[in-house]
Design a protein around this nucleic acid. Structure first.
Lengths: 224, 224
DNA sequence: GTCTATAGCTAGATAGAC
DNA sequence: GTCTATCTAGCTATAGAC
C-alpha cells in the first residue's frame, strides 16, 4: 500500500465512527442502533459491520482516538512540570477532561470485563496493545522522578489500573462537572506521593520499606 | 400469603434456575439460550421470562444463592477463630471454594458494571440489598477484633470491593485450581493485617496514623 | 397467581451477490 | 468495499387453561 495515500475505505470508517459517536452522545449507547448509525452515515448496515465487528468495537475505536489525544495533551501539559505529584495530576485530570461529555456511552468499554476470551475485554489479550500504550504514559510520567528502579517497573501498570477505576467512578459520578471524581483523584494522588516519600525518610524507612517491597512482590506474583 | 407453605411457583423457579446453571456450566453463558433453558426445564419460554426478566437475572439469582451459602459456610468455618487475619481468610477463601466450578459464566455478573442505571449493575441501586448483605459478612468478620470504631464503619465496604476484584481475578486465573488467586488473597490479607498492626505500634504510630486517617477520609468523600 | 402455546418484534450479526 | 437479504436470539404480547 502506498504509505502516502490513505486507503479509500479509511474515510468511510472515520465517517461511521464520527457519526456513531455523535449518536451515542445524543441518545446513549443502547438506544442508538447499528441501523441508525449506518443510515445516519448514509451507508448500508453491512458497511458498518465491515469496519466494526460489533457495536462495542466502535466505542473501542473511539477510545483509541481518546488515547492518542490524551498522550498529546498530557505531553503538552507536562511542559515545565517535573514533580511526580503534578505530573501524575496532569495524566489523570486531562483524561477526565477529554472524556467529560461521553460518560453516557463510556460504560460500553466495560461490557466484557468479565469475559477473558472476548477480544474487547479490558483485561484480555485483544486489548493488550491499547493497554500497553496507556501504561506507557504512566511510565513516562514517573520516569526521571526519584522513583526506584523496581517501582518504575511495576507502578505504571498499577497506576493504569487505578485510572481504570477512576473512569468507572467518573461514569457513576453525578456531581456537577464530576467534581467528586476530580477531588478524589487529587486526594488519592496526595496520599500516594506522600506514602512514597515516607518510604524515603530515613527515620521510619526500616519500618515501612518492607511493606513497599511486599506490595511490589504481590504485584509480581499476581502476574503483572 | 400463608407464611408456612411456599408459593406453588417457587418450585418452577428453582427448576428453571438449576437447569440454567447446569447449562451455563456445560456450555457457557452465551451459548445457552433462553429457549434451551426453557425446553431443558420442560417449561415454556414464557415461564422462564415470567420468573427471570433477563438471562443475566438468572445468574444474579444464582449469585443470591451463593451469598446465602457463603454466609452459612463462613459462620461455620469461623468457629473457634477469633483473629482478624484468619477470620478474613475464611471469608475470602470460602467464597472461592463455592464459586470454583462457575468461572465460565460468573462474568455475566459484571456485564452491566459500566451502566449505572441498569438494575443489575454491581454498583447500582438495583443491587443495593445484595451488596449490603455481602458487606455485612465483612462487618461480622471484623466485629469483635481490635479494629477501631472508625474503621469498623468503612473497612467492610472496602473489603467488599477488594473481594469483587478477587472474583474478577479469579475468572481470569488459569492456574490449576486457581492457586494464584488463593495465594494472592493470602498475600494481600497478610499485608493488610500487618499494616493495621503497624498503625497500632507506639513507635511509628504518629507517622503512619495520619495516612490511615486520610485513607478513611478518602473513602468517606468518595461517597461510601 | 402460575403457566402454556405461539406469534411477533427488534436489533445485533452474518452471507453472499455485485 | 458496499449492498441486500437473512438469520438468530433476547424479549414482548396475547389469549387462554388451571
Amino acid at each position: 500500500m502506498n504509505p502516502v495515500t490513505k486507503p479509500a475505505g479509511e474515510k468511510t470508517k472515520e465517517l461511521i465512527l464520527s457519526t456513531a459517536v455523535e449518536l451515542f452522545r445524543k441518545s446513549g449507547f443502547e438506544t442508538a442502533t447499528m441501523r441508525d448509525i449506518a443510515s445516519s452515515a448514509d451507508v448500508a448496515l453491512g458497511a458498518a459491520y465491515y469496519y466494526f465487528p460489533t457495536k462495542e468495537a466502535i466505542v473501542s475505536a473511539y477510545y483509541d482516538q481518546v488515547q492518542r489525544i490524551h498522550a498529546e495533551k498530557t505531553r503538552e501539559d507536562w511542559k515545565g512540570k517535573s514533580g511526580l505529584r503534578e505530573r501524575l495530576g496532569v495524566v489523570f485530570h486531562s483524561k477526565l477532561e477529554i472524556l467529560k461529555d461521553d460518560r453516557s456511552f463510556l460504560g460500553a468499554l466495560f461490557r466484557y470485563t468479565g469475559d477473558p476470551q472476548h477480544p474487547l475485554s479490558v483485561f484480555g489479550k485483544g486489548t493488550q496493545l491499547q493497554r500497553a500504550q496507556s501504561v506507557a504514559i504512566f511510565h513516562e510520567a514517573i520516569a526521571g522522578t526519584s522513583i526506584s528502579e523496581e517501582m518504575q517497573g511495576l507502578l505504571p501498570a498499577a497506576l493504569w489500573l487505578v485510572h481504570l477505576g477512576m473512569i468507572l467512578f467518573f461514569i457513576y459520578d453525578e456531581t456537577k462537572g464530576q467534581q467528586r471524581t476530580h477531588k478524589l483523584v487529587d486526594s488519592v494522588l496526595n496520599l500516594l506521593t506522600q506514602a512514597i516519600e515516607l518510604t524515603n525518610s530515613a527515620l521510619i524507612r526500616p519500618f515501612v520499606q518492607p511493606f513497599q517491597t511486599k506490595m511490589l512482590e504481590i504485584l509480581r506474583e499476581a502476574g503483572w
